[in-house]
């Protein structure tokens, strides 16, 4: 974590496609993620509306602002300010070799299930999460299905206590 907390005003805005200027998009380095979110929370963003992850394995040429190196995973956090009627979308690049992001559970407890979902389906881990277990898939499931290299239809159904044909 950096010693200097990036003030929200310094977020680099990125052209938004959401229309009518609803959301500000910003790319945040992974090391600053928590600090930036904490600063935004103090700045009046009361709610973490959504958190999801994207696997850009088969689309590495996506357009990114200058200075941002695209990694395989991207964690996308949507913050909502009710007092200002604004949204901010933070995009964090997460390398495939070390897919770990700081958990936001102690800032926004509402991200608990969303982080578990991102972990379950994409295998991005959240350090500091109280119970990072699978949420939608069975406990014994192998692999993370929303990854682009996950074989579709490889194993039709996995049942409990039945070792799959792998």
């Amino acid at each position: 974590m950096t010693s200097v907390i990036t003030p929200p005003a310094a977020l680099e805005p990125y052209p938004s496609t959401d229309g009518v200027g609803v959301a500000t998009i910003a790319f945040v380095p992974r090391s600053d993620f928590r600090a930036v979110v904490a600063a935004l929370k103090a700045d009046g963003f009361e709610m973490a509306a959504d958190l999801c992850a994207v696997d850009y394995l088969t689309f590495p040429t996506r357009s990114l602002p200058v200075g941002v190196v695209g990694e395989r995973f991207e964690v996308v956090l949507n913050l909502l300010s009710m007092s200002k009627r604004q949204r901010v979308r933070l995009r964090v690049q997460v390398p495939a070799a070390d897919p770990v992001v700081d958990s936001l559970y102690d800032l926004y407890p509402g991200t608990e299930a969303m982080e578990r979902e991102a972990f379950d389906l994409l295998g991005v881990r959240f350090a500091g999460h109280p119970d990072l277990s699978r949420i939608l898939l069975p406990e014994e499931w192998e692999g993370h299905p929303l990854r682009k290299d996950y074989g579709i239809g490889r194993v039709p159904v996995q049942f409990k206590s039945t070792p799959g044909p792998r």
Binding site: D98, G123, G128
Partner: peptide, 23 residues
């Protein structure tokens, strides 16, 4: 290994998928 903090976090292999129980 479930409740690791950023400090003592091990390097997770990407393929490692053993999770805790949901119960």
């Amino acid at each position: 290994t479930k409740n690791v903090t950023a400090v003592e976090r091990p390097l997770w292999p990407t393929e490692e998928t053993s999770e805790g129980s949901q119960e």
